[in-house]
Write a protein that binds this DNA or RNA. Structure first.
Length: 856
RNA sequence: GGACAGCUAGCUCAGUUGGUUAGAGCGCCUCGCUUACACCGAGGAGGUCACAGGUUCGAAUCCUGUGCUGUCCACCA
């Protein structure tokens, strides 16, 4: 016999081991069925599993469901080296140890991070397994696997061959701490207080927030239509302190309303100024080096970091009498997303991928609906983002990543190409000569490799033909642009087809107050703590129910606890069923699928409800309504199966049907709660059945018991009414009561259920009559049903009076509605008929209540 | 500046295409160890669906506007 309470820990590890030993997660060939494939968003192998990863439970639900439907199903797992993020994490670790990556050098650093990553990887995989994830771990890939790198190289080489790769010296986002460039999307802006300085440039006054960059000014620009400055265009201005003479030019970019309307142009340290510089063929001398320190400036400033240089320059300007005003201002400043350092725009050599064609095709795919994004609204966002995307800087000057397959000649005048993009070093040797080349040290942007993940993982497993395009990409809303959009671009480019048909986006998991979880707030919920206390199934339910696609959800210990209670309820219901079997000498393993007979009203009603749930769950999952489906299962199991059917069955046990019902419940709930269902399955399954994870998903059939289902509801209503009267009248629980039921239209339904009604309402005597007699407390139900409980002494009529008031206003509003000609002439006949019936019902009930009230 | 989302019971949230007197969980109140389950059972209280207009016979649901909260993008001399 089962334990009195479900104990998840020992069960979960045992069950998971069984699945793995039986290779239950590997796709089964079935040419007749459509394949289903999800690529797991590879977690960054630099930390621990958090709730963001735990949300992949959505994928597990879909995967398990499709597997049960007989589709060849693959959930492809992997981990990401996560370039800069991991590098920064590891550098912090080094810092704590009093070391730095520069003590190690690139090679040693790489090796150490590789060891660190491998260890984390193992960890993460085990943590995902403890979540019950049924990914095919035998196929797991890492973004730094050699065969994956090969594919990344192939793509880069192909892009180059197609003329879509170029190297350029342009202003880029540079992080002085990370010592690398970043793409625009990896920059975070923060509001900061600063000053707007107005400076005297001789003939003109300019406004700036960055006075330290004046030494790199190569022009002053004004708007061509700005009347104030019209005569100045073509004349000269003087950069203060260094007395450098620069031209005054006209450019449309300048907004006359900002500052003084005259803009100092610093092509080396500002993106827009760089563009202006290009248009006007201005030089772009740099005064900030890659460390973020001043160079090529007056001696007293040289070597200072920009913030210090700013203060000092302002001092100097002030002393020189050229600082005209200094006004506070709020503006947003670019920071490194990873380490928070202020980003310096400086000119550097970088590799770019031209995105025009890539984004065009991606947009078309989205517009045509080749890819469906759930929720829908993100489709437009994605298209808009693609629209404004600039060429993609794919090179990073970090050590942890995939080295770019590029080679340069040692001597630039060799007459050979300035660079060679080649898959192997041998090609470089052959081309430039044995010792006449050097190897590129830049690595690829992490997103460049991870954007090839769907086809790269499938190709390296030899499953491209079977599973590309994949079915669903389920991931966090926050990486729609960074990752999803780019997967679409590169997927279409390399495979000539979209990487996935459907994108399902989930939001952030917030705390019980709807606040973002963060270490500093101390409100972080660790998924593994939750699973060890409440069980994995409970956490899975908590993460799925009450959370909708694209929106943030909130999680609390109480919520998980609630679902733990639910799991335990299911456990005990099953335990009860097994006890019934024992009592009636029924061996669950011997019960065949059609071994049960529908004997009673309750049996038929249950059978109908079971099929109804089956349809709801199947259709709901088809429509990705995971929350509603989970809720329906919860309600059905607790409020219907346990509260009503099991209670009724205590009066007329039908153990074979109970076994059937529990099996059906376990099958339907399995995608959500794989562990407890699999465990219970082993107790109720038929001999020849295999594991639950491999059970076929049930098909739809007509129950033919819809009437009985409705009839049982009438019985339930009567039981509830008696209970309510007892509670309202303060009848002691152990006190016997005499009940009189006027069955109205439902005599034939209610009379045979007399025993059930009496038992579940704890009534002693139950009579069916046309009219009550004596002192009674009453409730009036639809279809003329009246429930009366004999009372000795005073009857509390407050409840009835309250109901009378409510009914009166209800009858009023219905009456108004029905006497409104607009309504009766325009509303559909069915609706009018419905309202009429409601009114008749309510009026009948009201009349009875009033009669009852008048007799006391 | 542009776009998007949210505003529904004390709290956290559901509510598919407009049509019963708007739902759940938790919390709260009253009872209760009745042949699985106190991780439980029975009953109950609690909402002008942010606000203002509009469309409609009918609006939480559609439209317009306002407010607050949040997210993303762009700008920031």
């Amino acid at each position: 016999m089962l334990d009195k309470a479900y104990n998840p820990q020992p069960t979960e590890s045992r069950i998971y081991k069984m699945w793995e030993e039986n290779r239950a997660f590997e796709p089964k060939d079935n040419p007749a069925e459509k394949p289903f494939c999800i690529i797991l968003p590879p977690p960054n192998a630099n930390g621990y599993l958090h709730l963001g990863h735990a949300m992949y439970v959505i994928e597990d639900i879909l995967v398990r469901w499709h597997r049960m439907q007989g589709h060849p199903t693959l959930w492809m797992p992997g981990t990401d080296h996560a370039g800069i993020e991991t590098q920064v994490v590891y550098e912090r670790k080094l810092e704590e140890e009093g070391r730095s990556r520069f003590d190690l050098g690139p090679d040693k650093f790489y090796d150490e991070v590789m060891r660190f990553t491998r260890a984390n990887q193992k960890n993460m995989i085990n943590q995902m397994r403890s979540m019950g994830f049924s990914a095919d771990w035998s196929k797991i890939k890492f973004t730094l696997d050699e065969d994956i790198i090969d594919i990344v190289y192939d793509t880069f080489i192909a892009l180059d061959r197609d003329g879509m790769v170029y190297r350029g010296n342009r202003v880029c986002n540079w992080c002085p701490r990370c010592q690398t460039s970043f793409a625009d999307i990896e920059i975070k802006y923060q509001e900061e207080s600063a000053f707007m300085y107005t400076l005297d440039y001789g003939s003109v006054r300019i406004g700036t927030t960055r006075p330290e960059t004046i030494f790199a000014d190569t022009a002053v620009a004004v708007n061509p239509d700005d009347k104030r400055y019209k005569t100045l265009v073509g004349k000269k201005a003087i950069v203060p302190l260094i007395q450098k003479i620069i031209p005054i030019i006209a450019d449309n970019h300048v907004d006359p309303k900002i500052g003084t309307g005259a803009l100092k142009v610093t092509p080396a340290h500002d993106f827009h100024d760089y563009e202006i510089g290009m248009r006007h063929k201005l030089p772009n001398p740099s005064v900030i080096d890659k460390e973020g320190r001043m160079i090529n400036v007056p001696d007293e400033l040289s070597g200072l970091v920009t913030s210090e240089a700013r203060t000092k320059t302002v001092d100097l300007l002030d002393k020189a009498g050229v600082l005209i005003t200094k006004e506070p201002l709020q503006h947003s400043v670019a920071h490194c997303e990873r380490c928070g350092t202020v980003i310096e725009p400086i000119p550097t050599d970088q590799w770019y991928v031209k995105v025009d064609k890539l984004k065009q095709r991606s947009k078309e795919a989205l517009e045509k609906g080749d890819i469906r994004i759930i929720p829908e609204r993100f489709t437009k966002q994605c298209i808009d983002w693609l629209d404004q995307m600039y060429d993609w800087n794919v090179s990073r000057q970090i050590w942890w990543g995939i080295r770019m397959p590029v080679y340069y000649p040692l001597e630039s005048k060799s007459g050979k190409k300035e660079y060679l993009i080649a898959k192997t070093e041998k090609e470089a040797k052959d081309y430039y000569g044995e010792k006449n080349y050097r190897v590129e040290t830049d690595t690829f942007d992490t997103w460049f490799s991870s954007s090839q993940w769907p086809h790269a993982t499938l190709a390296t497993n030899g499953m491209l033909d079977q599973f590309y395009p994949t079915s669903v990409m389920e991931t966090g809303r926050d990486i729609l642009f960074k990752w999803v959009a780019r997967m679409i671009m590169l997927g279409l480019y390399t495979m000539n087809d979209v990487p996935f048909r459907t994108v399902y986006l989930h939001g952030l998991v917030r705390d019980e107050k709807g606040q973002k979880m963060s270490k500093s707030k101390g409100n972080v919920i660790n998924p593994l703590e939750m699973t060890s206390v409440f069980g994995t199934d409970a956490l899975r339910m908590a993460l799925t129910i009450g959370v909708t696609s694209g929106n943030d959800g909130s999680l609390s210990t109480e919520k998980v606890e609630g679902y733990r209670n639910f799991i335990n309820k299911l456990w005990n219901a099953s335990r009860f069923v097994l006890m019934q079997c024992e009592e009636h000498k029924v061996v669950p393993a011997n019960v065949a699928e059609d071994d049960f007979e529908l004997l009673s009203l309750a049996d038929k009603a249950l059978f109908h409800e079971l099929l109804d749930v089956r349809v709801f769950v199947t259709q709901g999952l088809e429509q990705y309504r995971l929350s509603e489906v989970g809720e329906r299962l919860y309600d059905f199991i607790w409020d219907y199966f346990c509260d009503w059917y099991l209670e009724l069955s205590k009066g007329e046990s039908n153990p074979e049907l109970l076994v059937f019902a529990v099996r059906e419940i376990l099958v339907l709930l399995h995608p959500y709660c794989p562990f407890v269902t699999e465990e219970l399955w082993s107790h109720v399954k038929q001999k020849e059945f295999g594991m639950l994870i491999q059970q076929p998903w049930p098909a739809f059939v007509d129950s033919g018991c819809a009437n009985e289902h409705t009839e049982l509801e009438v019985v339930i209503a009567v039981i509830k009414a008696i209970r309510k009267i007892r509670a309202e009248q303060g009848v002691a629980p152990d006190k016997k009561v005499q009940v009189i039921v006027v069955p109205g239209k439902h005599a034939s339904v209610l009379k045979p259920q007399q025993d059930h009604i009496m038992r579940l309402s704890r009534s002693d005597v139950l009579e069916f009559t046309k009219k009550p007699s004596g002192d009674v407390a009453s409730l009036f139900l639809p279809d003329g049903i009246e429930v009366h409980v004999s009372m000795e002494g005073l009857v509390d009529l407050e409840g009835l009076k309250k109901e009378q008031t409510q009914l009166k206003s209800y009858v009023d509003s219905l009456g108004k509605k029905l006497s409104n000609e607009q309504f009766t002439s325009r509303a559909p006949a069915a609706v009018i008929e419905q309202e009429r019936q409601k009114l008749a019902e309510a009026e009948g009930k009201l009349k009875k209540i009033e009669e009852r009230l008048s007799t006391s």
